[in-house]
Design a protein around this nucleic acid. Structure first.
Length: 296
DNA sequence: GCCGACCAAATTAAGACCTA
DNA sequence: TAGGTCTTAATTTGGTCGGC
């Protein structure tokens, strides 16, 4: 089961993150058709400064950095290091647009990793249509972006054959992997914890509910809550699973052409204990996270 | 200095609302 | 009724500000 990337994709070198929704990147010459090789950091190579990045159509100038939308608000520090190779879709013709395009893939340790947090929704929708995910293959109708409480949940599945309770589904994007373990989240997510609590409450009311992770790279063999980055989310996941919320994770293979769901991997409820600080969670962020958590 | 509250950042998608 | 426009929510970090 695959979902194709929009084409064409333009190879770029990431210069740096401008803000949580934008990166600066320099266009490269050619689109690679195989797994990427590591690229040395851009620092000291004479590359333009990230702050010079431009948006709009004039961003196509090969000598000037592009300002690209980053469809993922996670931290992803290790994936967006200066000098990282990436693939971007350039946009043209929209005068309201403030960026030259969007960064969709980055090369990390010899493989492509998706940085598009919208992709899990598309993957799940494609899987529903293809009945490719066994836990949800019985449902014949679904609604996306379902209002629920103060916010929204990603999907409501109905009309199962054989009959089953309607199912609420929240999809999650994960692209942080350490030692074969996919870790979620890579930054504190109060909203993620809120979703889990809402789904646990729904289960108590007779609903079926599930959280589904799509690990947007192929080197994970399990998924666990990132207790260093967000201990509150780890606790919420444990509460939700104890209440009956189901948890699934699917490993994906990412290429410049498409992203393919490979297979299911186990979801651990117990957080992975890490001796060393995570490269994606700065000590300051971890301290802030722990401080907030201790106040709850 | 610590802490909480607030805000901006870019884009998409869905639903509400308005107009022809 | 159809199409266009507007609003809201989602995705969280990091900086600023004010109170203590």
């Amino acid at each position: 089961m695959t979902v194709a990337w929009p084409q064409p994709l333009v190879p770029v070198i990431v210069l740096g993150r401008l803000n949580r929704f934008a990166v600066a990147a320099l266009p490269e010459a050619e689109v690679p058709d195989r797994a990427p090789a590591p690229v040395p950091p851009a620092g000291g190579t004479g590359a333009p400064a990230a702050s010079e990045a431009v948006g709009g159509r004039d961003g196509a100038d090969r000598d000037r950095p592009l300002r690209l939308h980053l469809p993922n608000s996670g931290r992803m520090a290790e994936l967006l290091a200066p000098g990282t190779r990436g693939l971007a879709r350039l946009a043209a013709g929209d005068p309201h647009r403030r960026t030259a395009g969007e960064l969709l893939l980055v090369a990390y340790r010899g493989r492509w990793v998706s940085v598009d947090a919208r992709m899990p929704n598309r993957l799940f929708l494609a899987a529903l249509r293809a009945r490719a995910l066994p836990p949800f293959a019985a449902y014949r109708r679904w609604q996306a972006e379902v209002p629920w409480g103060r916010g929204r949940l990603d999907f409501r599945l109905e009309d199962a054959d054989p009959p089953a309770p309607p199912c609420l589904v929240e999809t999650k994007s994960c692209n942080l992997v350490e030692g074969g373990t996919a870790l979620f989240p890579d930054a504190p997510t109060a909203r993620g914890s809120r979703h889990l609590d809402a789904m646990a409450a729904a289960v108590r009311q007779g609903w079926r509910a599930a959280v589904v992770w799509f690990v947007q790279r192929d080197d994970a063999v399990r998924l666990a809550p990132h207790s260093t980055a967000d201990p509150a989310f780890a606790a919420a996941l444990a509460r939700a699973r104890a209440a009956g919320v189901e948890a699934y994770a699917y490993r994906c293979r990412v290429t410049p052409a498409a992203i393919a769901v490979l297979d299911a991997i186990p979801v651990l409820t117990a957080p992975v204990v890490q001796g060393d600080p995570s490269p994606s969670a700065s000590p300051g962020a971890a301290m802030r996270s722990e401080r907030r958590s201790s106040l709850r």
